[in-house]
Structures are given as structure tokens and as C-alpha cells.
Amino acid sequence: MKIAKPLLILIVLAAAVLLPIVTEAYFISIAITILTFMTLALSWDMMLRTGQLSFGTAGFFGLGGYTGIIAAADFGVDPVIGIMLGGLVAGGIALILGMAILRLRGLYFAITTMALASVFMVIIRNLHRLTGGPSGKIVYNTLFNYDSNKVYWFMLAIAVGTVVISELFQRTRIHFAIDSIRADETVAKSHGVNIYKYLIFVFVVTSIIQGVIGATYALQYGFVYPESSFSPHYLLLPIAMALVGGIYSTIGPILGAIILGLSSEYLKLIMPYGHLVIYGVIIVVVVLFMPDGVYGAIKAFFMNRKRRLEER
């Protein structure tokens, strides 16, 4: 068992890296989309683990996208540098805002992040000279010049990086702080956990991830547009994916992104408009009936079996 787990991870990783060799372009584009949403879902879940529900995912995603495009179009930097700048700007803004809004809790934090995402969009739509206003902005030097295999490997690297960060949050000392804040803030505080510091740290890290993903997504197509860069899809889908897979874990959002990502491609074919309704239904059903998601259900199944075996 001890060797099986790293081996499994290696096999999955190798399969993911070699994917472009065995499949055609259509599947690679699906895989890129799945990786994008997987990373967003993971970053959303990482914030949720502190007990704070953020609705700002789409906001930082859009900010990153705009930063990347502006850097590439107006300052002529390489798209990869633009992506790094996207992460930096998203992280910097998250740091400044986080210092204020992370004093809020629960409902008020959630609503404020939702409002902030809208504020970002209004500001960007009105800074005509810098952002192109409501009509958006395009750039000609896209990421790797539309070479989808390279984009895929790049996305995979970001996704793997996010998984590693998420696992670090789960395994190192910081996870005691994060879990204790979620479980009981007062107890955490009285045990000397600097809640505020950890919340800001997690908020900034997740925002950097969202900014990087936003910039990558924008630069691979070479355009941004307020309504699509800040689209609620980048909020709705990651939440649905994390919920389906199972929140408060690394493997949950990954599983959820793969399940929903693949099924959404199929749904798009049979139901071109309004297939998003399925995501809404999924959120409602999971919240009501399956609060631990698929991963939680699998885990519970094995736990039950183990217990039954032990009883015997």
C-alpha cells in the first residue's frame, strides 16, 4: 500500500504528460478547459477550508486575464511573463483588499467578495484607454502561438503546481491553523493562532492562482472582454466541481473537475443552450443530499467496508 500510492500518482502524471501524443486536438482542448476549471476549483476549495466562502473567483480570474493581455499588448512582454504579472497583480490586489475584508466573516465576507468581483468589472469596463472598455481588447502574440500541445503542458504544470500547494496546505503545519479556524475560531484564537495572518496568506495564494489561470486562459485565445472574462461561469463551474468531488480535500475538486468537465462536453452536444442548468441542479442536490461529494461517498463506503471486515 505504501508503494502503491506514489506509483499511482506517477502513472497518472505520466499519462497526463503523454496525453497529447496519443490523442487529437479536440480532446486536448477539452483537457485544457478541464485543467483550467480544476485549478479554479482547487483554489476556491483552498479558501473554503478556512471556513470563508469566497464568491470572488471570477473577479480575480478576470483581473489576471486583463493584466496578461494589457502586458502583452501595450508593453509587448512575452505571454509567459504576462501570465506571471497576471498572478502578481491579482495577488497584490488580494493582499490590499484582504487586509480589509478578511476581518469579515461568513455571509458578509461572501457578499463582499461578490460585490468586489462586480466592482472589478465596472472599473475595467470604464477604463477605456487601458482596457478597451466594453468592446474588450485583443493581442496578436498569443501564448505559444496557438500551439495547443504546449499550452496543454503549460496548463498541466500550473495544475500540478496548484495540487502541490493544496497538498502542502493539507500536510504541513499550516493545515492545523486552517482547520482550526474553520472548526472554531474562538478556540483557535485562544490557542495563539494568528487567524488574520493565515487568512490573508491563503487569500493571497488562492488569488495568485486564479490570476495566473485567468491570464493563461486569456492569452491562449488572445482576447479579453468584460462580460466573458468576468463571467459567472468561472464562479459557478468551479463551485459545482468542488462540491461534486467533495470539498475540503485536494482529490475532491480534481475528481469533480474531471467528472463535470467530461460530462459537460457531452451535455453541450445534446443541449447546446442552457446546459448550465445542470450545474445549478448539481449544486442544490449536493448541498441537500450529498454534502461530502463523490470522494466523501467513496471514502465512507471503504470506511464502512473496513469496519465491517474488522468486526468480523
Partner: peptide
């Protein structure tokens, strides 16, 4: 739906009504 999450804490309540919001919006779109 909502009666089932009244005691479940704000996180589930927000997620649930967010899901309902998306269902309503997309059904109208459909």
C-alpha cells in the same frame, strides 16, 4: 429545499440559494 438547510450554517445556505439562482436563470434562458 431551504427548510433543510436552516440549521446547516451559512455556507450551505449561500451555496444552496446560489444553486437555485443558477437554476432559475438557466431555466429562463432555456
Amino acid at each position: 429545499t431551504i427548510t433543510k438547510v436552516l440549521k446547516a450554517g451559512h455556507l450551505n445556505q449561500l451555496l444552496l440559494t446560489f444553486g437555485i439562482s443558477m437554476i432559475l436563470l438557466e431555466v429562463m434562458n432555456l
